[in-house]
């Protein structure tokens, strides 16, 4: 597992704080982005294996980031998990339609999230 890169995209630093610790504890390499633009540039540079993606962000939203990544053959193996407070069924189905592999709603359980991550890796 070691060496696999997970990109954490969220504009809430306190959420990033917990995710960063969680990912690091399991031996992944965390990459941090605080908005959509940053997410795309870091992803392009490091080609992460998985992206934990928030949806509501100040500039480019999570849907757009997801679409852009999935449309790029460079990221053929990159998995995406949406981690969002948007919890209505239509939000979830929209997120999956965008090409995401999983959709986890906030507030999330760290154990559950890790199970989902492991499933994809």
């Amino acid at each position: 597992m070691t060496g696999k890169k997970i990109l954490i995209v969220d504009d809430e630093p306190n959420i990033v704080l917990s995710l960063d610790y969680l990912v690091r504890r399991k031996g992944f390499v965390p990459l941090i982005a605080r908005n959509g633009t940053e997410a795309l540039s870091i992803a392009n540079e490091h080609i992460p294996d998985l992206i934990i993606l928030d949806i509501m962000m100040p500039d480019i939203d999570g849907y757009d980031v997801c679409q852009t990544i999935k449309a790029n053959p460079l990221f053929g193996h990159t998995k995406i998990i949406f981690l969002s407070a948007k919890s209505r069924p239509e939000d979830i189905s929209k997120g999956l339609k965008m090409g995401a592999d999983k959709y986890v709603t906030k507030p999330f359980s760290t154990k559950q999230l890790m199970v989902e991550i492991m499933e994809l890796m």
Binding site: E12, P107, F108, S109, K111
Partner: peptide, 12 residues
Amino acid sequence: RTPLTSIKALSE
């Protein structure tokens, strides 16, 4: 949900 998410994750 936003602060709740942090609280929950961190306390877990």
